[in-house]
Design a protein around this nucleic acid. Structure first.
Length: 146
DNA sequence: GCCAACGTTGGC
DNA sequence: GCCAACGTTGGC
């Protein structure tokens, strides 16, 4: 059983399209400089699944990612404080779930995205995962995970 | 562009 | 160890 997460990025900084373009090589989720977010990444296991969320102008979940490599030092950090995981894009959400839509769904009222919008790497519960997938037009049981 | 929420820093 | 000041994030 994977655990579920949500990764936030401004499209101008690192977009879903760029993540997709990395293909099977994946990409390091570097640049996180927040302890809570870092600790969530430390808890991740290979094969865990996550939402890719565009913050800023778009404010919507645009796709699904998988943890390709577990936590390792952030190569951009010389202090040895910050870590990252490597992510691979696995599928777009057919109907991107906007923050507005998420906020209207009672089932999703407790999402960290709603409760603590500033946290850039967040845990997602299994029921939240399934709900967002389904409302986004994707059957979560059809996802193949290695 | 503004501002609320949150996290971090540093003086005491 | 407390808390005021400051910086950053992100929704609006």
């Amino acid at each position: 059983m994977p655990n579920y997460w949500l990764f936030k990025s401004e499209a101008e900084t690192w977009s879903w399209d760029q993540q997709v373009a990395r293909g099977a090589k994946g990409e390091a989720w570097n640049g996180v400089r927040n302890y809570q977010a870092r600790n969530h990444m430390r808890a991740m296991k290979k094969g865990d699944l996550g939402f890719f969320y565009h913050s800023g102008g778009e404010r919507r979940v645009v796709g699904l990612v998988r943890v390709l490599n577990e936590v390792h030092p952030d190569s951009d950090d010389e202090t040895g404080t910050w870590d990252c995981v490597d992510l691979i894009a696995i599928a777009p959400l057919p109907q991107p779930m906007t923050l507005d839509r998420i906020k209207t769904e009672p089932e999703l009222a407790e999402m960290v995205l709603v409760k603590n919008s500033r946290l850039s790497v967040q845990p997602v519960t299994e029921s939240e995962w399934k709900t967002v997938c389904k409302l986004g037009g994707l059957d979560p049981s059809k996802l193949r995970t290695p």
